[in-house]
Amino acid sequence: MKIYLTKQDHTYYNDNGRILNTLYQSAMQNQAESATATRPRQTGRMLRRSLLQSPFADIIQFLALLSLSAWFLKGAVRDSGYHWQWYQIPKYILLLDEQGFHAGPLLLGLLVTLQISAASLVLASVIGLATALMQLSSSLVARATAKVYIESIRNTPLLIQLFFIYFVLGPVLGIGRFPSAILALSLFEGAYAAEIIRAGIISIQRGQWEACYSLGMTAFDSYLTVILPQALRRILPPLTGQAISLIKDSALVSTIAIYDLTMQAQAIIAETFLTFEIWFTVALMYLGVTLTLSLMVRQMEHRFRIY
């Protein structure tokens, strides 16, 4: 490899023309500080650097990216030849008649999605915690049961689990659509939550257990006051991800004719053929719910940061 030296700007180049001057440059900069002749060039470089690192540069970059995306989207929309009717959308969210505002089908569907998600979230947490504790217990039966549950749930499709619970177990247990959907979602997400919770628990140092035991605390009290509170802080981020998955997966309950957000969307599209407008709106509504959840958890994490 050849190295070229150009005297004027104290820069090394290799034979690909790449600048090799980082070390040399910093040495030269020190030297230049004492030499008044090179000062204008020096200040110019510093100005350039500070401009690049200022918030203005970030804003400009962001705007450039945004306008590029907009331009691309606009082109795609124009070329698709699709007849957009966004003005049709509001009435499916909120209706206004003589008696005032009513929730439109999409809002009603969102409410159902929220109900199912909230109930499943609670149940999935309980199932996840119980399964994690079973995996860590000394009982062989408990460990084996937990293992079989986790592996069978994680390695089969949710859709088939949902059908199985609704069409096969439902009649046997005497449960209807709603409980079936909640049970299926909870069992599915609970299996993933169990692995997250288990990882959180075993990540707590053995010394914490030993301190509890040396003080005469029972395993139950140790879990409740020392181990789980610390584990919760660590598993909150992955657990939030799992909760977001649950909300998105709840769209599958539309397959057993529950009128959740997705089902309402399908119904409207079947009537109106507003395919893209409705689906984009629905996606935005899901996004709103999951973003709210993320922000709430972010707040919780801040509260945890006191120690």
Partner: peptide, 16 residues
């Protein structure tokens, strides 16, 4: 364990 107290090399205080 109720009658025996123990102090560890790495303290093992509850950080939370």
């Amino acid at each position: 364990r109720r009658e025996v107290g123990m102090v560890f090399q790495h303290f093992n205080l509850f950080p939370h």
